[in-house]
Design a protein around this nucleic acid. Sequence first.
DNA 1: CGAATACTTGATTACCTTCAATACGCGTGG
DNA 2: CCACGCGTATTGAAGGTAATCAAGTATTCG
Lengths: 199, 199
Amino acid sequence: MKVTAPRSVVVLEGIVSTYKTTQAGRRQAMAYHVPGDVPDLQSLHLKVLDNSISAVGLCRVGFVQHDAIRHSMRAHPRLEAVFWRSTLIDAALVREWMLNVGRREAYARMAHLLCELITRLQVIGLSSDYTCLLPMTQPELADALGITPVHVNRTLRDLKAAGLITLRSRRLTVHDWEGPKAAAEFDPIYLHLGSDEAE
Amino acid sequence: MKVTAPRSVVVLEGIVSTYKTTQAGRRQAMAYHVPGDVPDLQSLHLKVLDNSISAVGLCRVGFVQHDAIRHSMRAHPRLEAVFWRSTLIDAALVREWMLNVGRREAYARMAHLLCELITRLQVIGLSSDYTCLLPMTQPELADALGITPVHVNRTLRDLKAAGLITLRSRRLTVHDWEGPKAAAEFDPIYLHLGSDEAE
DNA sequence: CGAATACTTGATTACCTTCAATACGCGTGG
DNA sequence: CCACGCGTATTGAAGGTAATCAAGTATTCG
């Protein structure tokens, strides 16, 4: 029964993923975290760790002591709602992935993941013209999509063949945004990017 | 773009599920909520609704105005952490379902869902001797497991044939807890039932 | 009591997995 | 500079789990 250290991770560069594994060792990614995210902010209130974190490709992370977070929340009470909201958005991303894994076939699933990444990276200035760096290997994509690495390969091949994407040496471009978006049924509402705070 | 009403649901009796649907109409349940749960507490901080709620069988629910929740949090500051933690546990349940749907085959998936239900209902006194009421129909189970209703039927048949469960007229019994638990790789750690609050 | 929904089972199909073998890319060292 | 080695990517063939199609039975509900 692992217990979290009294600190959380902050992603500074690169992409980090949270995941869980079955006892048989099969791995399922829960979400990707981009620079600025705190993948395990939940550990502030849940002492027992129920998922793991790993780097996807090279990345740089920082650590924040929980005490420091608590202190700043006491100093600025509105911060608590901000952090809380952040964990709620994380949960919303996981739910969308769940729909993806449970009810879309591999082709749409992959398209959806790529649309999400492009959109999120664009927001933080790491993507423009529907192009970004895709640091993850095919086995890592497989863990995010709930399929096998071999099938990831075939799915990417199909997406390329359909002209929806280009992917060469870690460089992803999504062509004709509306096409992939439709294939993926991608609707960014679940990312809660707008300033749609309640009240 | 749906916007939530300024209130949340409280489950009083029965089971409620949160779910999302693809544009093609395929439905994936995110979690089940038992009496005492607040399935959409997240709407306190996320104005835009990204999932839906529906009753699973007959149930009784109440509503709480967000203003009332905010008021009580101001009156009792420790409440904020309690509610926040509650949303974090909800997220943990969704993550476990994600692992279930993405990386376990139907048989283990079903066993896992049943183990979770029995465990959670036991905690609130709605199950004893590994027996409980199972209000959901097979199509509803299918939505929770990411499979088809037909396959739910076959999977239940197999579980019965293996002697792991009995299910007749909405009454579920899990025999020999260790067997199903092993088949499902069920480890209740993710339910955060202990008083494992951080700090 | 009739219609609608849920359950059950068989036959066929399809998506994805598994197994296997080969090719590619890239950093290292001869 | 090129050979080597390792991780990653690619492709083929065969197999399996679950989906789809279909038809009949049982239950529930109005």
